[in-house]
Amino acid sequence: MGVDGSNDSLQLLDHFGSLYTMEDYRTNGYQVYFNSSWMANSRLTLHSSLLYNWSQAELELVDMPHVTEEVEEQLHHQDFTFEEMHTYSDLKYHYVNVQLGFDYQLTPRIAWMFNMDYSHLTADEEYVFGDEDGSMFITRTGVKIDF
C-alpha cells in the first residue's frame, strides 16, 4: 500500500486536515436599578429598591464550509453541519430583585426594622445548565438597640 493509495476494503483511510469557520459570540445585557429612602417623619423611614437585570450570551449559527467531493466520498456517513450547535452555548436570564422595608424609631435608642426581599430568576435557555428558574423570598424583622 502506497503512501497516497487507498484500500478499497478499508473505506476510511485518510485524514483531510481541519475544517473551520469564524463565528461570532455575542454577550448582551442591560440593567436598571432604583433605590429610595424616605424619612416620612422623625420616627419612620421607608426604604425601597428595585433591580432588574437581563443578560444573554449566544453563539451565532455555525455555518461550516462545504467539504470537498473527495472528503464527501470517504467520510460519507459523517455530518459536518452544525446547525444546532449554537444553541448549546446559548444563555438568557432575567433577574429581578425587589426590596421593601422600614425603620421605626421606637425610642431614641431603639429602632424596629422590617425588610422584605424578593428575587426571581428566569432562565430562558435551559439546555446548558438545566432548569435554573426559581424565586427566593426573605422576610427579616428585629430591633436594633443602641446602648
Binding site: L19, R26, N28, F34, W38, M64, V71
Partner: peptide
C-alpha cells in the same frame, strides 16, 4: 428627607473566534 438613586447600564459585546473540526473518522 428623601434620597433617590437610579441607574442604567447596558453592555454589548461580540467576539469572533474559530469553530474547528478535523475531517477524520
Amino acid at each position: 428627607e428623601w434620597m433617590v438613586s437610579a441607574g442604567y447600564t447596558m453592555y454589548m459585546g461580540k467576539s469572533r473566534g474559530p469553530v474547528t473540526v478535523a475531517l477524520f473518522d
